[in-house]
Structures are given as structure tokens and as C-alpha cells.
Design a protein around this nucleic acid. Structure first.
Lengths: 127, 127
DNA sequence: CTTAATGCAAACGGTTTGCAGCCCT
DNA sequence: AGGGCTGCAAACCGTTTGCATTAAG
């Protein structure tokens, strides 16, 4: 994997931010940099794909149906999203294992949540 | 809201199935019915939209980025998705309130999960 | 008869792909 | 010098919209 301006810029962006971002958001940020304002959205997508395949970054699909990317975290974590400003924060307390009392969560109001479990179902196991 | 063939067919479909389905999946099923094989995908989308707005049905966005629809459930619930056959089952035990020991879950292997919390963040609260 | 609902086609937004040229190594 | 990476343009897929026609009440 070669070191190119776009790659460096995307990684710098992802390192600086802690929440997951969409390709378009990253693209817009690059546009503001005069040295990179000719980059193409397709290149951003291709690089993000490459980062994901190489394990540097990970997909993260929230409910808004657009793909987001973040640097791969070693720790298991979830996201808490403000339903007003859409800001996304990280949550390292997992409600599946411990009862829920994270400090971050306590500061939010009108809490709701969405959980999905994934696994191999009984009928697939017996195939 | 008028009673039309398409609407009846879509509702019958959603009543018969217990999991959330995409507009395209519903559309394909209608196609197999000779009385409805001229329906348009746009009409399916429009009707599903109308059902959601009237509260009969609800959106449900899983990680595959395509919108799904299901009849509105009165009980709070989540979904468990087989990572092999993609089949979706319902889960009425909520891991956010009680420790996780649902019977359905116990039969799945290679469990992983995804949780999103939503709420108003502290900075939005003070605006 | 009146208005809502439909089919068709075209537009849309996010994402992917093909291709010719460019630039990292 | 060579192959990976890029920009550009066009294709793609799920979803939405405009419009003229049809059918429900």
C-alpha cells in the first residue's frame, strides 16, 4: 500500500476525530484543503475500502443508512448518538455484560436504543 | 385511506410474516400473484410510507443499509439476525433492563451484537 | 363526481466501476 | 520503468417524485 497525499489526509482525519464519519464528510473536509481540493469522492471511497480490508479501519452502519468509517478499535464498543445534534460518542460499557450505568449515558435525556444481535441460528448450525 | 388491492396484499404479507421485510422483498412477493403482477415498486414504497405515517407499520433499519418494514409492535423489542441465513427473529427480552438470558439467544452460536443508544446530549439540553 | 391511488418514467443520493493517465517506490 | 493510485465519467441500486390515468368512496 503506497503512501499518498489522500491516504495520509484521510488517516489524519480519522485519527483526529473519535466518532465514525461518512465518506462524504471526509471528502468535504479534504476539499477545504487547497492541496487536496481536486480529490475525487471515488478515491475517498476506494481508500476507505482499502483501509477496511487491511483492518486499519472498520465499517459502522448506524440507523441513518449511510456507511460510516472509523479507525479500528481494539476495545469492544458501541455508540451513543444525540437525537438532536447527531453527535456520536463512544461507549465502552457494554449493556450486554454489565448493568447499564455509564457516566456518558446518564447525561443524556430521552434515551432510547436499538440493539441487534448476530449469530448462527439453530437451523444453520445443523447444516 | 382507501382500501385497494395492493394495500390489502401488503398488509396480509406483513401480518403473515413476523420479521421486518424490505420494499423489494414485498414487491417480489406481489409479483408472484397474477392479480397483482402489474404493481409498481413505487406504489409499494408509497404504501409502506403511508402505513408508517399512520402508525400501522414501522421502519426498521438493520445493518444492511436497506430500509425494512414491519407491523408496529406494541411491545419494545429487538431483532436477532442469523449471520448465515440472514433470517430475522424477534426478541422481547431487552438486555438494557435485564441480564441477558433469552431462550432464543441461547440457541445461537458465534454471537455478536450491535447496540445504539439515542438521546439528547448534555450540550443540546442546555440550549 | 371527486379525490386519492396507481403505473410509468425520470430523477435522486450514496456507492461502485472502467478506463486512461499519473505518481509513488 | 512498472504497477498501484488517481480523476473523470458513467453505471449502479435503493428510494423518491412528477405526471397523466384509473379506480375507490
Amino acid at each position: 500500500m503506497k503512501v499518498t497525499k489522500i491516504r495520509v489526509a484521510i488517516l489524519e482525519f480519522l485519527i483526529a476525530k473519535k466518532a465514525p464519519y461518512t465518506a462524504q464528510e471526509i471528502y468535504q473536509t479534504l476539499q477545504e484543503n487547497k492541496a487536496l481540493n481536486s480529490v475525487d469522492l471515488a478515491s475517498v471511497y476506494r481508500n476507505l475500502d482499502k483501509f477496511v480490508k487491511s483492518g486499519i479501519a472498520s465499517h459502522c452502519q448506524l440507523s441513518d443508512a449511510t456507511l460510516r468509517f472509523e479507525l479500528t478499535k481494539t476495545e469492544h464498543h458501541h455508540h451513543i448518538i444525540c437525537t438532536s445534534c447527531q453527535q456520536i460518542d463512544h461507549l465502552f460499557t457494554c449493556p450486554l455484560t454489565v448493568s447499564f450505568s455509564d457516566k456518558i449515558v446518564k447525561n443524556y435525556k430521552n434515551l432510547s436504543h436499538k440493539l441487534e444481535l448476530y449469530g448462527i441460528c439453530p437451523s444453520c448450525q445443523s447444516k
